[in-house]
Design a protein around this nucleic acid. Structure first.
Length: 488
DNA sequence: CCTGGAGTTGTCCTA
DNA sequence: TTAGGACAACTCCAG
């Protein structure tokens, strides 16, 4: 009699460490690890281009860690899993849960089907510190404000589970069985995840992708970044942010691993305890924001498409192709905005402080709908995440949960001066302005002609003139927002 | 049901 | 030069 085979379906948990589904599937007997690229079920939110690049290299790494035993498929998981189960006599199927509404629907369908055919199915929490349905107010309804969600909901709930070790060894299904089953698997190249243009080269130059790289990144952050996180995180040229977002999204590191590693690293550190504690708490609360976004998406599945505050449905957004393209390409004429948008295009990432600046600029100064920003970020960020992306765009637009008040309109000149005081970040991404002094760096149109000339800049030729007037666009936004008042 | 306090990240004007 | 208040009103949350 053949040994029963257990299947581990990798999804957004591309790691061996702290992977509950993997440990369950690989505990004994025969083990089959698979990944399925599903381009059938997601309707609106198919993977963006940057995400596809990241996924390509993540799968390559994961396959390496599994000694080349990861099977890849492309298509509808429901059909593929049924075929594998039938051909290989699969007895048990394991995965870690995902929380996008379309995945929840798909996975419950699949679970039901598999159980119907007599297969044992188990799913685990591998992506969140607390399940969205566990955190609720006393009356059972979900939180809509971050602070009570985090302090009362999360921190007073059970402590996050400690990470578990990776399985010691794998008993992969043998090759003869696999070959004779003739599964419709394909190689990495056939998944066609890489774009036609050379864009991916720039992106991978900036990142080491995969589980091992994620752990290294965490160590770098714990050694250098986190100590001055509270203040340093606001400065895009400093190295105080973790840059773990993409790894977290793809599950190359678990939030539990990060949470407990941070706690541990502070236990042993005796320098400047009060500052450290503030930095520690601030960083952990950012993990809390990730939990909050996922909770919002879970309880309000229309978060990616509909204003959480429906009074925003009558907001007078402007259609403006030209302005949108200027924003996307980093040619608005506002250096800190353009630096951010170019960082995004060149690296697949943007520093959080700058995300807020470019978001505020799009939504408030240009009055362009947050959907446009959301979808550009979705396409170009390596950390594109449905929950974080939609919750954050709604937040900056003012229509989200616990959102920024409407009068909070970032001034790109002030923000540039305050958070990039030496201009290092801005000059890195806008080299054509590098010879311009700090004084005019964030408002080059204010520089006298001779200063511009000395710096070798002709506005409108080497660098664009600003596409809108800050004062006027601010007033226009305030007026637009005032139309939403319930009792004018 | 009522009530009081509070709500990630800002800007601008005025004294 | 700098510190403090206005910018509005609303909803959320907990006691």
């Amino acid at each position: 009699m053949k040994k029963p085979t257990k299947l581990c379906w990798f999804r957004q948990d591309l790691r061996l460490k702290d992977n509950l589904a993997l440990n369950a599937a690989a505990s004994d007997s025969c083990f089959l690890p698979i990944y399925i690229l599903d381009e059938v079920n997601p309707e609106k939110f198919k993977l963006g281009r940057a995400s596809r690049i990241w996924l390509h290299y993540s799968l390559e790494q994961l396959n390496k860690e599994l000694d080349g035993n990861l099977l890849l498929f492309k298509g509808d998981p429901e059909l593929i899993l049924a075929e594998i189960a039938k051909k290989l006599d699969i007895s048990e199927v394991y995965w870690n849960r995902c929380y996008e509404p379309w995945r929840i629907a798909r996975d419950s369908r699949i679970k039901e089907k598999l159980i119907d055919t007599g297969i044992k199915v188990r799913s685990y929490n591998g992506a969140l510190l607390w399940e969205p349905w566990e955190i609720a107010k006393a009356d059972g309804t979900p939180y809509r404000v971050f602070t009570p969600f985090y302090r009362k909901g999360c921190l007073s709930a059970s402590l996050p589970r400690k990470p578990i070790a990776r399985p010691k060894n794998f008993n992969f299904i043998n090759n003869t069985d696999l070959t004779s089953a003739n599964l419709p698997s394909c190689n990495l190249k056939n998944l066609e995840l890489l774009p036609d243009l050379d864009w991916d080269k720039k992106i991978i130059d900036n990142w080491d992708i995969g589980e091992i790289a994620a752990e290294r990144r965490l160590q770098v952050f714990l050694n250098d970044g986190i100590n001055d996180y509270k203040d340093g995180r606001n400065f895009p040229s400093k190295t105080n942010v973790s840059r773990l977002s993409a790894y977290l999204h793809w599950g190359e590191i678990s939030p539990n691993t990060i949470w407990h590693a941070v706690q541990e690293s502070f236990k042993t550190d005796k320098i400047k305890p009060e500052l450290h504690d503030k930095s520690k708490d601030t960083f952990l609360s950012e993990i809390g924001w990730r939990e909050f976004s996922h909770s919002l998406l879970y309880h309000f599945p229309s978060l990616p498409t509909k204003n959480l505050q429906s009074k925003f449905d009558r907001f007078p957004w402007q259609e403006n192709r030209k302005d949108l393209e200027a924003w996307q390409s980093g040619s608005t004429g506002y250096p800190i905005v353009d630096a951010g948008m170019r960082e995004l295009w060149q690296t697949g990432y943007m520093h959080n402080r700058v995300r807020m600046i470019v978001g505020s600029f799009l939504v408030k100064n240009l009055l362009i709908h947050w959907h446009q920003g959301e979808s550009w970020f979705w396409d170009t960020l390596v950390d594109a995440d449905l929950a974080n992306n939609s919750a954050s765009w709604q937040w900056i637009a003012g229509c989200g949960a616990d959102a920024a008040p409407y009068f909070r309109i970032f001034n790109p000149i002030t923000q540039g001066k305050r958070f990039d005081p030496d201009g290092d970040y801005t000059r890195e991404y806008i080299p054509e302005l590098s010879a311009l002094s700090d004084k005019y760096l964030f408002a080059p149109w204010e520089a006298p002609d001779n200063i511009l000339e000395q710096a070798g800049i002709e506005l409108g030729k080497h660098y664009p003139k600003p596409i809108c007037d800050l004062k006027l666009s601010r007033e226009r936004a305030l007026k637009a927002f005032s139309q939403l008042k319930v009792n004018p």
